[in-house]
């Protein structure tokens, strides 16, 4: 390398500046995610009421000292329900992502490793999966199985897997073209070991950043499914389902029961996106 690296470094600097959000935004978003996770873990300890405790004397109560965020059509405390809802909402998104990641990374890595006809066949399969909207998958799966959280997760997982597969294939191809991979082969490292022990860990930083951004999307898609009634069923206080149940109040002019879980979803999704973009910038620094 004989080109002075100064030019290159400064040329990329303004781009990085623009993409990097100011640290306080990042910290605030990190805090929001922390609160959401804490709520999911410690819900029974921190929520003032049980999520399904009805109080028919306080139906659609406005926010006040007894119910900080008011109550819904059955007089259930909205704050408590949102806190309890964190667990099924976040776990759902995690399960969805885990399922999609296992499937997607497997397809992507195998396609990049084997190339040739294997790559072609897998690309066709993912293309077909791509062509179906996620919703259609879920409808298909519900037709076979029954509605429920697992169905929604598997259906959405199948919709997300091709995204991850395409991304993984792209970064794996780039990685496999690096000479150190050839060096491992020449040392007598077998294919499975090369992928599992050396290739995947090197893909991880890039992949994790991408998955964090996808997490927000997954959360939203699951919430939509639950809103449509394909996933979680009452009395669950999953956020999407809460929005759906809160619709009755909107007609009556009581916005709280729908607005609070809706805003919660929005805030958590935005926070994961901010954190994810920042994370992938930091992790994906390649040498």
């Amino acid at each position: 390398m004989t080109i002075d690296d100064i030019g290159a470094r400064t040329a990329s600097a303004p781009v990085a500046d623009r993409r990097r959000r100011s640290p306080w935004t990042f910290r605030a978003c990190l805090a929001i995610l922390g609160v959401a996770v804490a709520a999911a873990v410690f819900a029974p300890l921190v929520a003032p009421y049980a999520p399904d405790a009805t109080d028919f004397s306080a139906i659609w109560a406005p926010p006040g000292p007894a119910h900080w965020l008011g109550t819904d059509q059955l007089g259930r405390d909205i704050l408590s329900r949102v806190i309890h809802g964190a667990r099924p909402s976040l776990l759902g998104a995690i399960a969805l992502l885990a399922f999609a990641t296992v499937l997607g990374v497997l397809i992507g890595v195998v396609a990049a490793w084997r190339r040739g006809w294997v790559d072609t066949v897998l690309a066709r399969i993912t293309d077909v999966m791509f062509a179906f909207p996620g919703l259609l998958f879920v409808v298909l799966i519900i037709a076979v199985f029954d509605r429920g959280p697992a169905t929604a997760v598997i259906g959405m997982g199948l919709a997300f897997a091709p995204l991850i597969a395409k991304f993984t294939r792209a970064i794996a191809l780039e990685e496999l073209a690096r000479p150190y991979v050839d060096a491992y082969r020449l040392q007598g490292v077998g294919g499975v070991q090369l992928i599992g022990r050396y290739l995947l860990p090197n893909l991880m930083p890039t992949l994790v950043g991408y998955l964090v951004v996808l997490f927000g999307e997954g959360l939203m898609s699951l919430a939509s499914l639950n809103f449509l009634g394909f996933g979680a069923q009452p009395p669950s206080s999953e956020w999407g389902l809460m929005v759906q149940e809160g619709r009755a109040g909107v007609i009556q002019g009581v916005l709280g029961p729908a607005l609070v879980p809706g805003l919660t979803i929005a805030v958590v999704v935005v926070a994961t996106n901010v954190v994810g973009v920042r994370l992938s910038d930091k992790l994906a620094v390649r040498t």
Binding site: T2, D4, I6, G7, R9, T10, A13
Partner: peptide
């Protein structure tokens, strides 16, 4: 010059193609 000797920077300076904040 070898890498990092500043030869490219010198040439670029003739066209005022300078690193930012230089």
């Amino acid at each position: 010059g070898e890498s990092g000797s500043g030869k490219s920077t010198t040439a670029r300076a003739a066209l005022r193609l300078l690193p930012e904040r230089a």
